[in-house]
Amino acid sequence: MMDFWDYLEYAAWAGSAIFGLLIVADWIKTDTTYSEEMLTSSREGELEAMTEQHKL
């Protein structure tokens, strides 16, 4: 007999899969869209100048 808690288990597996897919899909998209130089361009201590010029 399936009860509410059994459905909850399946829902949790499904939720996990969805979040996992969302992350992986965006990861692949990001890595293929931008150059590796740009993605790894962050440097310690260079932040001040960066935040001055970015727009929210």
């Binding site: 740009m38 962050s42 440097r43 260079e46 932040l47 960066m50 970015h54």
Partner: peptide, 13 residues
């Protein structure tokens, strides 16, 4: 840092 537009860093928020 000649060309900052090509760089990404964490955000101060």
């Amino acid at each position: 840092m000649a060309d900052t537009s090509e760089k990404v860093g964490l955000l101060r928020v």
